[in-house]
Design a binder for these strands. Structure first.
Lengths: 211, 211
DNA sequence: CGTTATTTTAAACGCTTGTTTAAACTGCTT
DNA sequence: AAGCAGTTTAAACAAGCGTTTAAAATAACG
């Protein structure tokens, strides 16, 4: 395996575990068993390494997500459950792409939104707008009465639910194991969260009596 | 104002903005206009300072939250909207306790769950179990059919929604301002999120056909 | 084989981090 | 006024950070 990939693999799991700020290049290179300077030689800087780790996943995921969402839109009136379920297969396909891929990617997504003051949010929304656009279209088809403003809020709430859940998914799976004696996996968590976010996005429009 | 409080105030807003890992003691002491060593003199360590910042809010909030939730439980069959609405007044009361108190506290809560590998989660659940217990009881009264396991998951989803939303609430309020020309405040965000989480928690139990 | 080009390596760079030290200063009591 | 506990201060500490350098090792090619 190439040095570049060894670094990417080590960085990925460490970033997912301890965040971007919380992981040093020395930890990465020692887990990858490469020289410290290799990061700056191959990637230029730590920031570029973070982007490279994210890009590797997004380039894999983004086209699958887009086609899945476009396919949903072809239906006359999809349900919100159907819309959100469109994420399942593309996300789980990351597990074939790499061990723990789904879990790692979703954790990284969560880190990116809270670490480093949102530069990753900029990165994703500017580099991969196709996913977001198609998602908005699909939700609109499933719930046309939802105003643009409510849509904005509820999609961000959904992002929060997913991202937060996944960034602490390992801890949650552990608790579920000890409290309910259930051996769950990341796919179970995904299946669990979908009814929740679908119901949240599908909540009735509040009567317009705000200040 | 005492040195101790000057430090607490500066640390609070900086922690909320940039996270615990992302804020140095030198930033804190220079914003507080006190000597660097004052933090270790008054609090012992950075970790203890973080606890002190959180405790100041939790000691204010926790009793109000408990009584509000207990009051909800006295009702025969509260709705989920009512249960979640019980949080509004206690949370907004933090704004009288301190400028931007509500927003700062909720952001800190979000930071605590993702920074520092969850030591704050331990801190809150062990130090303030009364809030969580009463909340679970209230939700159970509002939705008795919800199994313990589903309850566990959905409350964590809710935590994720709220915590993530609030940790990026400033950015969201800015976007809402430019996109929809609405001048929103933290109280508007809270009122917005309640129908979402209430619908999420109230989602129908999935048919038990999982693997 | 010899000569480039690419990659790896050890060492050092300058800087920031949390924490500690010991001296200076403050306000109070006797 | 002297002494004393509580507090503040400047300076230094060791450790860790991301990054750079220049030499050594390896690979690629005519």
């Amino acid at each position: 395996m190439s040095t570049k990939n060894k670094i990417l693999d080590a960085a990925e799991s460490l970033f997912a575990d301890k965040g971007f700020n919380g992981t040093s290049l020395r930890e990465i290179t020692s887990q990858a068993e490469v020289n410290l300077a290799a990061v700056n030689y191959h990637f230029g800087s730590k920031k570029e390494l973070i982007k490279a780790v994210m890009s590797r996943y997004m380039n894999e995921l983004s086209p699958r997500l887009e086609t899945a969402l476009i396919q949903i839109c072809e239906s006359e009136s999809p349900s919100l459950i159907e819309v959100f379920s469109a994420f399942i297969d593309p996300l789980l396909s990351l597990n074939e792409f790499k061990n723990n891929g789904t879990s790692n990617f979703l954790q990284l997504l969560g880190r990116g939104y809270t670490d480093s003051q949102g530069f990753l949010r900029w990165f994703l929304t500017t580099q991969y707008p196709g996913v977001i656009d198609n998602f908005v279209i699909a939700v609109h088809k499933a719930y046309p009465e939802l105003s643009a403003e409510e849509m904005f809020w509820r999609l961000h709430f959904t992002m929060g639910t997913v991202v937060f859940t996944m960034s602490s998914s390992e801890a949650l799976i552990d608790i579920a194991k000890s409290d309910f004696e259930r051996e769950l996996q990341i796919s179970d968590v995904i299946h669990n969260v979908i009814p929740y976010v679908a119901a949240g996005v599908g909540a009735p429009m509040p009567s317009n009596t705000r200040s």
